[in-house]
């Protein structure tokens, strides 16, 4: 079953075409990777799916509903979560508060209840704390740092907290933009394992952008390749590795 589908997506900035006629489907419960050289339009696709960019053409469907015209915050509430290439945590908050923020859209506390913090607001916060502890903090093994401000954390841990925040949203589709960029081998392995666990233990659907080919080829179910805003190939990791267009995009052509 397709949980996310993108049809004939085109995006341009002024005269510059960032994406041209991109179509793909993501099936529920798979890891779908998007690769391509720098500037190929990978992040632009995520920004269109998230609602941050408004594409000139095309249709985006999330879980059977057309979301092309939906605002970013509504899409998030519908089950779309995102981690960023350049970490976008809220630096003034603790790890715990950052993660709790992920649950924002499914909480109910109103402004008035928040000021009183008595009865429903208190009950909701306590249930949330328990939820977040069991569901996310334990899963990602970040118990020791939960009370620290995120600004004080090492880069690899910040990436993990960002994933935690996204998981707290209980997303139907998780968009991950370069989750292992700039990490050492051990951190990369940890992250790859978490991504696989999200798929296998929780049945999560993940759209992944990454430059680390080892990770991509190891954990992806299907891979789509972009070059200069065009889709040039789609298939299993093995098919992609031997695809002539992909080899040309990455390695260049042989001179005759």
């Amino acid at each position: 079953m397709n949980i996310l589908s993108v049809e004939n997506l085109s995006l341009s900035f002024g005269g510059l075409a960032a994406l041209t006629d991109i179509t793909f489907q993501v099936r529920a419960g798979e890891i779908f990777s998007i690769i391509g050289p720098n500037g190929a339009g990978k992040t632009s696709i995520l920004n269109c799916i998230g609602g941050f960019y408004k594409p000139q053409q095309g249709r985006i469907t999330l879980d059977g509903k057309d979301v092309t015209k939906t605002s970013p915050d509504r899409r998030a509430a519908m089950g779309l979560a995102r981690t960023f290439q350049n970490i976008a945590l809220f630096r003034g908050m603790t790890v715990l508060d950052n993660i709790k923020l992920g649950a924002h859209a499914r909480l109910k506390t109103s402004l008035l209840q928040a000021l009183l913090y008595w009865g429903p607001a208190h009950a909701e916060e306590m249930a949330l704390r328990e939820d977040v502890e069991k569901d996310v903090i334990d899963f990602l093994e970040i118990e020791p740092i939960r009370k620290l401000p995120v600004g004080a954390l090492a880069y690899g841990l910040q990436k993990r907290v960002e994933l935690a925040r996204a998981l707290a949203m209980r997303p139907k589709v998780l968009l991950m933009d370069e989750p292992v960029a700039g990490m050492n081998a051990e951190e990369t392995e940890d992250m790859a394992r978490f991504v696989l666990d999200i798929k296998e233990e929780r049945g999560g659907t993940i759209v992944l952008i990454e430059h680390d080919m080892d990770v991509i080829m190891d954990i992806s179910d299907r891979v789509m390749v972009l070059n200069f805003g065009h889709k040039i190939a789609e298939g299993t990791p093995e098919e992609i590795q031997h695809h002539p267009e992909v080899i040309k995009a990455y390695l260049g052509e042989k001179k005759n």
Partner: peptide
């Protein structure tokens, strides 16, 4: 929390559903 999120990074706050 939503207030602080808006101050720290409004774009990612919006993508969090705020």
């Amino acid at each position: 929390r939503a207030f602080i999120a808006i101050r720290d990074r409004d774009i990612s706050a919006e993508l969090m559903g705020i």
